[in-house]
């Protein structure tokens, strides 16, 4: 018993030491404290559990649901949930459970692609505007304001109308409407960093503006951007599902949750499960991201902490 608990205590006191011996120890200690306060927030834990479950589900989709999400069986159309088909079957006799599980991959792909486009774009625009200031700042922030002033879904609709329906275009349309908040956040962070001594020191050493931005400013803006991404995930998922529902996102037969709800609409009154179950999946996943984002914000952003 004691032999077991002693190393654990030592490890904890090393992490929580008030006088860390190295930078790594300080950083890990900070992370550990954040982790502890994260653990104290049950809602955030639920959120993390949901997101981890989504990741695992997407990763192991072929194991969790061995059948093909496209396999039709017209003799088994619109069957209610049973032990054989957990979530029932749709109008083409496809197993809804299989399609929901594989749909997690589609949703995750969309969300990740949008995040990969939006975060660096917003970061680049925001840090450049904040660091250089002057005319560049005015012009970039005006453009940001213009995009912020628009209804996001309607703008995405108009973009999809121009580009044509499909997953790739939905991703582009969502990304085009989602970057402005990131630019705002990154700019605000950069403005406070710009005048600090360590930036002046790097500049005196002869570092180029590019190097200062990429190596010294951007890493410090990352944590705010990451919080923003997590909080935004739910919005992205809902917008993507909305586009899918309208028939402008992922096209059938791709098992995208929004599109599945849309195809189940025709049978809503008699076969409720076709439309409602994929909708529950959308709801649970975006709830998970919202809870996680709220928790992360409390931990990582001390300014917001109450």
């Amino acid at each position: 018993m004691t032999a077991y608990s002693v190393p654990q205590v030592r490890w904890r006191s090393w992490l929580l030491s008030a006088a860390p011996q190295s930078r790594i120890q300080a950083r890990l200690g900070n992370l550990y404290l954040g982790w502890l306060s994260f653990l104290a927030n049950p809602l955030a834990l639920v959120g993390m559990a949901i997101v981890v479950a989504l990741l695992l589900m997407a990763l192991f989709a072929p194991l969790l649901a061995p059948g093909s999400p496209y396999a039709q069986s017209l003799t088994e159309r619109l069957l209610p949930p049973s032990s054989e088909h957990w979530f029932g079957t749709d109008e083409l006799g496809r197993d809804i459970y299989t399609r929901v599980v594989h749909g997690g991959r589609v949703t995750l792909t969309i969300v990740l692609l949008v995040a990969i486009i939006v975060a660096p774009l917003g970061l680049a625009i925001g840090t450049a505007a904040g660091y250089f200031g002057g005319l560049l700042d005015t012009v970039l922030m005006r453009i940001t304001d213009i995009f912020l002033a628009f209804p996001r879904l309607i703008l995405a609709l108009a973009f999809v109308a121009a580009l044509g329906p499909g997953i790739e275009n939905a991703v582009i349309a969502i990304a085009l409407t989602a970057w402005p908040p990131y630019a705002r956040v990154a700019r605000a962070e950069t403005m406070t960093l710009r005048e600090s001594d360590f930036i002046s020191a790097v500049r005196l050493q002869g570092a180029s503006s590019m190097r200062i931005l990429v190596r010294h400013v951007m890493p410090l803006c990352l944590s705010s951007v990451i919080i923003r991404v997590t909080l935004d995930m739910a919005g992205i998922i809902l917008t993507a599902a909305g586009l899918g529902f309208l028939g402008l996102g992922a096209q059938p037969p791709i098992p995208e949750w929004g599109a599945m709800v849309s195809s189940g609409r025709a049978f809503l009154l008699d076969q409720w499960w076709v439309a409602t179950i994929p909708g529950i999946a959308i709801f649970v996943v975006s709830l998970g991201f919202n809870l996680l984002g709220d928790g992360l914000r409390d931990v990582l952003d001390p300014k917001q902490r109450r």
Binding site: L238, V261, W272, F283, L287
Partner: peptide
């Protein structure tokens, strides 16, 4: 409030129709 932030509006509409209308 959090549920309101997370639920897809089109799905809630369908469920509402199913329950309160049908």
């Amino acid at each position: 409030g959090l549920v309101g932030y997370s639920v897809p509006v089109f799905w809630l509409g369908l469920v509402g129709l199913l329950i309160f209308y049908a």
